[in-house]
Design a protein around this nucleic acid. Structure first.
Lengths: 359, 359
DNA sequence: TTTAGCACTCAAAGAGTGAGAGTGCTAACG
DNA sequence: CGTTAGCACTCTCACTCTTTGAGTGCTAAA
């Protein structure tokens, strides 16, 4: 692969992204920095086609990049420019200052991305694997009716109603709550497992059979905790690009198939994935560009966009990059937040430093 | 409006629904029960066009119904047939028995509707205006950090974290909880208002200024309670019908514009609304067919479908009708359920029934 | 009031055409 | 040897022209 071929490939991809039309040898030759004649370029393009980086829609048309062509372009050739300062300021304005609640911060970022890229924005909140159960409460709210409240060190609160066979006496309730706190508080979300709860059901049933629905309820809540939160916004933008199948787009917006698995993968920096490369997340010619943001050094979620493969990567990647960086710093920054504080132990005083989070 | 004209209108609508093509006089004349010649029908069709019930896409095409035409057809002419017993059984199977949790019941109904009609299903849970606040708890969970828990008689549970300026002593907490319970328990969701909370903020601040965030928190939770829950499923089906604007469909699926207001209207029986008739809910040529289901005689939510205007009303309306009927009877039926019990108050012990339900 | 007949209109589908863009190949060039 | 000019060839796209057929409105007769 000589250097000129790479430059030609880059030129074809750039041009194709810009115009959406197949790119011919003449067009490439006219571009800045191309010192060779169309004929030479034709030869190289034929070679690039041989190698699987370019293809022709039909015999007498120009070339368009293949998947492999895009891959090579993105991973090896293209280098996204730095964002100019005024753009950074603009993004800062859109995000909001350090006193913006985290949730809003992320929503603003999504809005900014849809606005700037005219694509759908994707936002996920990572499962807080390392945050710990900080409090479990069982509150009687009616005849044989109880509400279970589960609170974690990262500020998630889950509740659930639960009906028992018999009413509990104050002592029984006391016993139960004590038992649960003993067994659960300080346990990380990642450590929670069915088996653990099965054992608790057994133990608790020995004391009083009808307590087991409560344990099961807590078990269900803990499953909720492990559910990744996923939002896709601005999905309508995807309908404007006609290289995407509308049907697939809508199905995706409704079910978000496969996205969750994809975002749970560990990776660092910007990640670009093509719809066709992944079996589950499957909008035909789409491209997913995401990055993870961190909170106090731990992955806290991811943020990115979904657009056509033919998207302006050079323009878009710096946006995603800057936003995740910025969010990471805003979240971890000096300002007090729920997590930082609560991590030091709500129910049992625990260790010292900071927070939950993960990896 | 003589009878024959009505029959011709009906024939045109039926044919148009069946074929999707403009309907000509000859086609109508060939239909069962039409004893007159195409020429006669032509005259009547011209009259119907004059009256605004039919229109021609272009001079030499057949006729298609106008909005008014559909309206007349739906409201006055068409009479949807009764569902045959085997169909009813089929639907019963799809719904699930009387031991199915309410939420699942409704989800099943939606699934059945998308399946049977190949349209998007709409489900809403009515704001439980008449249910009352049955419990308010404030639980300390960390340094200056509290979780507010709000429970209503219909089983909704809402929570929210709240940060105060100072920590509360046990007495202060006691006082506050007591005050809140005194003022809120037994108050119906409908009666809750900003002013009410403003007054409470004032009263509570007199005792201790830093309590007001808690009241505000409760106020926000009460706003959540008044939020109607809305789900649209199977939205991808809408993309198959090309009379609907894909863009509008996706925008609608994402934001559900205007649907909530529309479903909050009071009406009884089946309601058919056209997208263009309503300013806010606006998918161009769409038709919304909904009915309300009840629980113990009170509106509990609505259920229906969104499809193209050119939908088979005769087939679809009986489905929606039967499903809402059935759900109403399953929910209110002999079987124990949360609301029955809790409606009479949880915090005050009262009569009896059973099950849970939440969120 | 209904019907047959007829001239008229218009959209949709097909056929033919020319322009233009782009190719691959060959042979000449430095 | 790599590079370039020239050339014949291919294929799509946009355009025009024509034909076809469905459906109409009107008029006059039954």
């Amino acid at each position: 692969m000589d250097d000129r071929k790479l430059r030609i490939l880059a030129a074809v991809v750039d041009e194709y992204i810009r115009t959406g039309e197949p790119v011919g040898s003449k067009a490439v030759s006219k571009l800045d920095g191309m010192r060779v004649s169309p004929a030479t370029i034709r030869n190289d393009m034929a070679a690039l086609e041989q190698l699987g980086y370019l293809e022709q829609p039909h015999t007498s048309a120009g070339r368009i990049p293949t998947f492999a062509g895009y891959r090579l372009y993105i991973d090896k050739i293209m280098s996204p420019p730095d964002l100019p300062d005024e753009e950074k300021h603009r993004l800062d304005m859109m995000l909001g200052g350090s006193d913006t609640p985290e949730e809003l911060l992320v929503r603003n970022a999504a809005a900014a991305l849809t606005e700037l890229t005219q694509c759908a924005a994707v936002v996920s909140k990572a499962v807080p694997r390392f945050s710990v159960i900080s409090k479990v409460e069982v509150i009687p709210t009616g005849k044989r009716l109880y509400v279970i409240l589960l609170i974690t060190s990262n500020g998630s609160i889950k509740n659930k109603a639960c009906r028992l066979e018999f009413d509990l006496s104050a002592e029984q309730l006391e016993f139960f709550t004590h038992y649960i706190e003993e067994n659960l508080s300080g346990v990380s979300v990642d450590e929670l497992s069915e088996e653990m709860f099965d054992k608790m059901v057994a133990a608790v049933s020995a004391y009083m059979v009808s307590l087991s629905p409560l344990v099961k309820g807590i078990c269900e809540l803990s499953e909720d905790l492990r559910q990744q939160e996923l939002t896709v916004s601005g999905g309508e933008k995807l309908l404007s690009c006609d290289e995407l199948d509308k049907m697939e787009v809508v199905r995706f917006i409704e079910h978000k198939n496969g996205l969750s698995e994809l975002l749970e993968d560990t990776f660092s920096g910007i990640q670009v994935r093509f719809g066709a490369e992944s079996s589950s997340f499957a909008i035909g010619n789409s491209s997913l560009i995401v990055s993870k943001y961190k909170k106090d050094g731990r992955e806290a979620g991811s943020l990115g966009i979904i657009g056509p493969m033919r998207i302006d990567y050079k323009k878009v990647i710096p946006y995603v990059d800057y936003l995740t960086e910025k969010i990471s710093s805003l979240m971890s920054g000096g300002d007090e937040d729920f997590d930082q504080e609560t991590a030091d132990g709500i129910s049992e005083p625990q260790k010292g430093a900071s927070d939950d989070g993960n990896r």
